[in-house]
């Protein structure tokens, strides 16, 4: 596992997002502070409607905050123009979605190379990188398959490969296992574990404790704010026996 350094890659300060007005005002995100260091995996957990997805959208520039700041590598990004935000999504930040969001008519490798093509890489370079990533993620033999011919777990792997194709600073994952059964969840779990060990900075929004448990830190979110932070590093397997009534 790579050591997390102290410089925050992604930083949020007093981040707010409000919808509606007057009586109908909804504070979806209400004053969130967050520092994510390079190589760190951070999980955000909470019940549905707590604002965790909105927070993720704000962090990735898919949505604009009502107040507060988002900084990427120390640079403010919440007030960037739409065009600059697009450039940021091409190069620095990528998404993994709950429902994969793969293009149904494109094969696995075509889906993966899409981000690289958007970023202006040559078709050949984009294809090579896409094949490499699929290879690394254990989908080498399936690169010419359409998403409909892949299992849920494999589809999410393709989506992750796409997210990684431009070597982003941060990968934001929104309920990456929300649409998967337990076997596929395990598959994706394994994948995030590998990413973590590889040193990829990850922010995962989830309501699945298992996914959250792969993180270095876990935030509990309630009504738009973080109510608790848990540092998960440390601990030994020695205590495990107690969990099943073994040992003393």
């Amino acid at each position: 596992m790579s050591e997390a350094t102290d410089t925050p890659v992604l930083r949020a300060r007093a981040l707010r997002k409000e919808y509606g007005k007057g009586e109908g005002l909804v504070r979806a995100v209400d004053g969130v502070d967050l520092d994510v260091s390079a190589g760190e995996t951070v999980a955000i957990m909470g019940p549905s409607g707590c604002g965790k997805s909105t927070l993720l959208h704000l962090l990735g520039g898919l949505d604009r905050p009502s107040g507060g700041e988002v900084l990427l590598n120390g640079r403010r990004v919440d007030n960037l123009s739409e065009k600059a935000l697009s450039r940021m999504r091409r190069a620095d930040i990528s998404y993994v979605f709950q429902s994969f969001h793969l293009m149904e008519e494109l094969t696995a490798v075509e889906n993966v190379e899409l981000s690289a093509l958007m970023a202006g890489h040559s078709p050949r370079a984009a294809r090579r990188r896409a094949e490499e990533l699929l290879d690394q993620l254990g989908l080498a033999g399936r690169s010419r398959f359409l998403p409909s011919a892949l299992s849920g777990g494999q589809r999410q792997r393709v989506a992750v490969a796409r997210a990684l194709s431009n070597q982003p600073l941060v990968v934001l994952a929104d309920e990456p296992t929300g649409n998967l059964d337990s076997a596929a969840t395990l598959d994706v779990l394994q994948l995030f574990n590998e990413l973590h060990e590889y040193g990829q900075t990850l922010v995962i929004v989830t309501h699945d404790a298992r996914i959250a448990a792969t993180a270095d830190r876990m935030f509990s979110m309630r009504d738009g704010t973080f109510v608790d932070e848990t540092r998960l590093t440390g601990g030994t397997t020695g205590k495990l026996g107690a969990l099943v009534g073994l040992g003393d």
């Binding site: 697009s86 091409r90 990528s94 998404y95 293009m103 899409l114 958007m118």
Partner: peptide, 9 residues
């Protein structure tokens, strides 16, 4: 999706 992947509006 294209925009999420970095295409401009």
């Amino acid at each position: 999706l294209a925009r999420a992947l970095g295409a401009t509006p």
